[in-house]
Amino acid sequence: MDLLSIVVPCFNEEESIESFYGEVQTELENVNFEVIFINDGSEDNTLEIIKGLAQKHGNVKYISFSRNFGKESSIYAGLVNAKGDLVCVMDADLQHPPSLLPEMIEAITKENYDAAGARRVSRKGEPKIKSFFSKKYYSLFNRISKIEIVNGGTDYRMMTRPVVDSILQLTEYNRFSKGLFQWVGFETKWIDYENVERAAGETTWSFLGLIRYSTEGIVAFSTMPLTVSIVLGTIISIIAFIYMIFIILKYLLYSDPVQGFATIMCAILLLGGIQLLSIGTLGKYLEKTYFETKNRPIYIVKESNIDGD
């Protein structure tokens, strides 16, 4: 290994960047490495602190976006500009322990794995409801998708150059890195670790934000929701047809007038809700197609100290 590139997406991480770099430097004392910080439209002094580190350390690179494009765009920008034989993606808040870096390097260079990923075996410190929904999401995703995401698997992973090049071939605008990492294949070693709380600051991920991110993953790697809409519509149509025949026969045979205003209203509201849900599901897939056809850039660079940017 001639060079290890570490890609670090940053959004309002001014309190942790220096500590992060210090710990990485300690763990990689005998390794030739570069750190590529991606400033994703931070609103604090994140960029200034990164620039200060770049002036002191020649192996610190940075890319600053023109606005906030999201973590997925930051990861992609880092992979595009990483020059190392090995490339690692990790967060700046130290929830991805730098102490795992030597073990990741060993897994690839000595055990011949193509990638090494970090997997949380506990969610200590997280709200229980968040942990519950996270586990259920992984279970649901793996049931309806042709690829499998490891429960507890994180974006923190180290990859060989062939793996990175394969990911860069996937130039889609709507990106879900956890799925893309698995989609390209290759042999991955998972390294377990206990959950670590943020070194400083507060998370920028809200519960609703995580739900949106989870929905993106399902839409990106499964068409099962569309199939469910078709199946559900077919079942309800069959039931409605059978019930219609029942009502007609009941009236013809027994002259029983049709009654039940409450039943009719419930049926209308139920069917209306299912129709709106199905239309919304279809619309979500059309939305992805709409943005892909625009062919907009995944990110826009405002400034950088990397040659070519």
Rank of each mutant, 00 (worst) to 15 (best):
K294Q: 11
I75N: 11
T223A: 09
E72A: 12
K135N: 10
G179R: 01
E292S: 02
I63C: 02
D44A: 07
I264L: 06
E148Y: 07
S66T: 15
K61R: 12
M104L: 06
L3G: 02
R143W: 08
E202Y: 13
K288I: 09
V150P: 08
E126T: 02
G117W: 10
M104Y: 09
I247P: 01
G22E: 15
G308W: 03
D309H: 03
I17G: 09
P162Q: 09
R175A: 06
S134G: 11
N195E: 07
K250F: 01
S134F: 01
C266Y: 12
E106M: 09
Q25K: 09
L253K: 12
G233D: 10
D44E: 04
G52L: 03
A77Q: 03
M224I: 03
Y137N: 00
F33L: 08
Y254V: 10
G70T: 05
D155I: 06
Y299D: 07
P257E: 14
N195W: 00
W190T: 10
F246N: 11
D40F: 13
L252H: 02
S66V: 14
G308N: 03
P257M: 13
N305V: 05
E72V: 08
H96M: 06
R198T: 06
E148P: 06
I279V: 14
K61Q: 04
S66N: 14
L28M: 04
N195K: 10
I75E: 08
Y251N: 12
L226P: 07
S122D: 15
V184N: 06
V196G: 06
V184R: 00
S134W: 02
F186D: 03
N305D: 08
T26V: 07
G84E: 12
L180Y: 02
V7Y: 00
T223N: 15
I211Q: 13
D40G: 00
I147M: 03
L226R: 09
V24L: 11
I191A: 10
T26G: 11
E34Y: 01
T109A: 13
G153F: 06
F141V: 09
I218F: 10
G117Y: 14
K189T: 03
K189G: 04
A240Q: 12
L100C: 07
I129S: 13
S122W: 10
A200W: 04
G152L: 08
F141K: 11
G70P: 02
L226N: 04
V31M: 00
F176Y: 15
Q169P: 03
G283H: 02
Y156F: 15
S5D: 02
T293E: 10
S5W: 00
G41A: 14
A54Q: 08
G179Y: 07
A107P: 06
W190I: 08
D192T: 03
R296Y: 05
V24W: 04
F186A: 04
T204H: 15
L101C: 02
S64W: 02
W190N: 13
S278D: 15
D40V: 09
I238D: 04
I50K: 07
